[in-house]
Nucleic acid binder design. Sequence first.
DNA 1: GCCAACGTTGGC
DNA 2: GCCAACGTTGGC
Length: 153
Amino acid sequence: MNYWLFKSEPETYSIDDLARAGKPAMWEGCRNYTVRNFFRDTMADGDMAFFYHSVADPTGIVGTMRIVGDAYPDPTQFDPVSDYYDEKAPKDGSRWILRDVEFVSKFKRCITLAELRTIPGLEDMFVVRKGQRLSVMPVTKEEWDIVRSLPRI
DNA sequence: GCCAACGTTGGC
DNA sequence: GCCAACGTTGGC
């Protein structure tokens, strides 16, 4: 079982949007090869992930979700009217893939980035590292457990 | 709005 | 295959 952190701008897609969906949703639009490789090679059905709000006030972890099923081609790469359209994407869909995710929980409060930076044991967490811009990143079990054990969540 | 940091592109 | 230029992310 692996653990992850997924970033999303809540104006685009928030934890509430995922909760309202009431079923697994496509995590579409990732256009970064490192993330693509995570989706393809490392992530597995049943993995757990934090939902993180970026470009928000405040930014931070707002809940959890579960990875459902296997990776498959992201349909938005073939959609000319989509923001995520990629005219050079091979027809076999191998360039950009996605994962389905389902809502698990929303925290009672946002665990802000500022708070994460102060918590012993999270010093090396990807999301607190300077310049780290991946929209999907791995989380260790130790980091997962520390965040899950914070008060009032 | 600024800008640091990083990923991607493309010329050579 | 190198690397400069460019584009994007995302915190502040």
